[in-house]
Design a protein around this nucleic acid. Structure first.
Length: 502
RNA sequence: GGGCCUAUAGCUCAGUCGGUAGAGCAACGGACUUUUAAUCCGUGGGUCGACGGUUCGAGCCCGUCUGGGCCCA
């Protein structure tokens, strides 16, 4: 039984795995290749489904084709066998194998060698069965790839853990997984189309950075042997995109991965796709319009409407111009006192304590205000809402509000209760920018792990003159969440999971 | 970081009061030329997440650890 090609079957394997390995070995013994280099395929199952829609019951077409697919249903009877083939997009077609067409030997081999999950090529005539099912009636068949593991029960959903750990199986068995996987590239294409229509230029900027910056977040640190120095995985592309604007790429965007060394939950992944964009001679309002257009066009691309249907069946209306609320007005309403960006830290702390909030003593005044906002208002942010006007001390890259003291021209866009995007009127004064970054570095020196560093090259770029501009950033995974109602791990094909223990 | 839930056959899950480990699908052997989660007859498949404790006896009770989920900060 054992040959060079067929190592000894491990006898400690579970029964079903062992049997399939034995089938593979047996086929090789008989000179049948379980993993051939090529099999016949003249059309896709989808081609067949489209070509023969509306065919009458129990007809023969005379058309001979070779079709391939994974067997997801198999019913062997005495002299007539049925199988359902499925291809990658979920299209299915029935294959029929009858004794009088394929002969005794091929029929017996089909019954004994072929299992659920195997990929096969079937050559035969396109017909409809007596029950009206569009089918291929085999003249011959060939194994394309032997599956050594049984597929999960097709009729019971896999547990969430199994789906994430074995996404390849999830994609085989669960239609929603196939839809989600195909929706992301649709959204990406839509985002790029929208940017192109607005004459934005796409760039790619470093993911491995000597300094991290552009957001308040803890970075992943790594080390370059060649340069003998520490490097950081980027937390945001902002400072490089702004360098592009200095260089005259007046409208610029990037869609790429960011990495943040922080907690992971149903809306946070350590690596996540982000679209970030800067528009010269724009401001926080014009970039908000761009952002809304990006999202509405993406909805149109995947749902054909600005009203999207979530996984739970609920409908979310993303149409229109969207609600705007002021951050400090919302806080004032929530605490029953007038709160502004000038309200002292001690007063904010008093309000927060009254709300029963747990307060981190490291929070600066602006951070405390934002935390109070999230505590009192986040439930009201289900419909798309721009929250306008953030405190200056948490927004070191944003320019001061043109009227309101202590506030910067920054908005956060909330949908379904989570932050989907953020946008600014960008700070372009290099002297103020240096002061803000130095403040950040001082916070960092005092132990704030999310503080930014002083990026001298970035400041030098600004000193050459940066046009007034609006900028925005949006999580692509979160955009998919807003469009589908799925958790972030369902929008990412292969989210990080801890290794299984042996 | 804190709280709650959870881990049993390939998959999805039951498992009562602590007393020989169960189902459906899947698998194996047999019958069946129109099945659609076929049907019928028969059969096999388990380190009950890991380690420790209590007990005459632990899937079940207790502790620790690990993985997963939900909620909170």
């Amino acid at each position: 039984m054992t040959t060079e090609n067929t190592p000894a079957v491990e006898d400690d394997l579970p029964e079903q795995l062992r049997i399939r390995r034995e089938k593979r070995a047996g086929m090789i013994e008989r000179g049948v290749e379980p993993y051939p280099v090529a099999v016949e395929r003249t059309k896709s199952l989808k081609d067949i489904r489209e070509k023969y829609t509306g065919l009458e019951v129990d007809v023969t077409t005379g058309d001979i084709e070779s079709l391939t697919g994974r067997i997801i249903f198999k019913r062997d009877t005495g002299k007539l066998c049925f199988a359902t083939l499925r291809e990658g997009d979920g299209t299915e077609l029935q294959a029929m194998l009858s004794l009088d067409k394929v002969g005794q030997e091929a029929l017996d081999a089909w019954k004994s060698d072929i299992d659920l999950g195997d990929i096969v090529s079937v050559t035969g005539e396109i017909i409809t069965s007596k029950r009206g099912e569009l089918s291929i009636l085999a003249h011959s068949w060939k194994l394309a790839s032997k599956s050594l593991r049984p597929l999960p029960n097709d009729h019971k959903p896999m547990s969430e853990e199994t789906r994430v750990r074995m996404r390849y199986v999830d994609l085989i068995v669960r239609p929603e997984a196939r839809v989600a996987a195909r929706m992301r590239p649709q959204v990406m294409r839509s985002l790029r189309d929208t940017f192109n229509n607005f004459d934005f230029i796409e760039v790619e900027t470093p993911m491995l950075q000597v300094m991290h910056g552009g957001a308040a977040a803890r970075p992943f640190k790594t080390f370059s042997n060649a340069y003998d120095m520490d490097l950081y995985m980027r937390i945001a592309p902002e400072l490089f995109l702004k360098r592009c604007v200095v260089g005259g790429i007046e409208r610029v965007f990037e869609i790429n991965r960011n990495f943040r060394n922080e907690g992971a939950d149903s809306s946070h992944s350590p690596e996540f796709a982000m679209v970030e964009s800067y528009m010269s001679y724009g401001d926080w309002r014009s970039i908000a319009d761009v952002t809304r257009t990006l999202i509405q066009n993406a909805a149109m691309a995947v749902a054909g409407s600005h009203v999207v249907t979530h996984a739970d069946g609920s409908q979310k209306d993303l149409s229109g111009s969207w609600k705007e609320i002021s951050l400090y007005d919302a806080i004032s309403e929530g605490v029953g006192e007038t709160v502004t960006a000038l309200t002292p830290h001690a007063d904010l702390k008093k309000y927060a304590e009254k709300l029963g909030m747990k307060i981190d003593p490291k929070w600066v005044t602006g951070k405390l205000a934002e935390e109070i906002f999230e505590h009192v208002a986040s439930d009201q942010l289900i419909e798309p809402t721009f929250v306008m006007g953030y405190p200056v001390d948490t927004s070191p890259l944003v320019r001061a509000h043109r009227e309101i003291p202590g506030v910067v021209e920054k908005w956060d866009l909330y949908v379904d209760g989570f932050e989907l995007a953020t946008g600014y009127s960008e700070l372009i004064d290099p002297v103020i920018q240096r002061d803000r970054l130095v403040e950040q570095a001082q916070l960092g020196a005092k132990g704030d792990l999310e503080a930014m560093q002083v990026d001298e090259d970035f400041l030098r770029a600004m000193e050459f003159g940066m046009p007034p501009m609006g900028g925005m950033g949006m999580g692509v995974d979160r955009l998919l969440m807003a469009l589908t109602g799925l958790g972030i791990r369902e929008t990412i094909l292969f989210p990080l999971v801890k290794p299984e223990v042996e």
